[in-house]
């Protein structure tokens, strides 16, 4: 059974000073003491707030994108011999208590990556426009996969040591979510999904992807598949 002390919770964050302390506090309250915030070149007090809330903070000097932040978290885990990492979004849309669900599935199914899926159960709170973007992204990403994944864009994921060692993400932006799945499959990693809840607020809606970013993400994934096919 995977214990909370075996898990490092990685939170890539960019200008999340107003919510990051609450997110870190929520994770700590669930019994996960090892929290890493990757401050991705924020111009606000994200790093100070996260540190005050009890997280270890790694700061990018300049903003490089969500994918770059996620890969820095993976790299940190690799260097420090961490057995499992859980990535969650910094905008407070995820429920930290769901981390245990991911850990359970990883344990039971011997999975290397477990994705928290917003679409495996009925989530009425998800705005229609987000549902539409995500469905389109699913079609695009699953085109390159052998299995069908219900939420390819979820930022709530758990990785074990095998995945930490083998994943080398090249996409700096949001496209890393798709890249991780495609790359994981190619590397022979076992990927599973588990239903999670999400809370969309006006704040979290102001973050994340819009149509332009979605097109950009799709282009980045195509470019990545052409330039780094392995």
């Amino acid at each position: 059974m995977i214990q909370p002390q075996d898990i490092c919770v990685v939170i890539p964050a960019y200008n999340e000073g107003s919510v990051i302390a609450e997110v870190v506090g929520g994770v700590r309250n669930e019994g996960f003491a090892h929290i890493l915030v990757v401050n991705d070149g924020s111009s606000d007090d994200t790093a100070a707030q996260a540190e005050r809330a009890g997280a270890v903070v790694i700061s990018h000097l300049v903003n490089r994108g969500a994918g770059a932040g996620a890969q820095t978290g993976i790299q940190y885990a690799r260097l420090n011999g961490i057995a499992h990492i859980v990535q969650i979004d910094a905008d407070g849309q995820h429920f930290p208590e769901d981390i245990r669900k991911l850990a359970e599935v990883m344990d039971q199914e011997q999975a290397d990556i477990v994705i928290g899926s917003r679409f495996m159960s009925r989530n009425k709170d998800i705005p229609m426009i987000r549902v539409l973007y995500n469905k389109l992204s699913n079609v695009f990403t699953n085109w390159f996969c052998t299995r069908w994944y219900s939420d390819t864009q979820s930022g709530f994921r758990m990785l074990n040591r095998v995945a930490i060692e083998s994943l080398d993400l090249h996409i700096d932006g949001f496209g890393y979510c798709s890249e991780m799945i495609i790359l994981g499959e190619k590397s022979g990693l076992i990927i599973r999904e588990v239903p999670i809840r999400v809370a969309y607020t006006a704040y979290s809606m102001s973050k994340g992807q819009d149509l332009y970013m979605g097109i950009n993400t799709a282009m980045n994934i195509l470019w990545k598949l052409v330039s780094h096919p392995k």
């Binding site: 990757v38 070149g41 903070v57 790694i58 990018h60 000097l61 490089r64 994108g65 770059a68 790299q75």
Partner: peptide, 15 residues
Amino acid sequence: SALTALTRKLALENR
């Protein structure tokens, strides 16, 4: 890519 690699290296070294 080079900028991201450099940024990451510096961030990890500083930590």
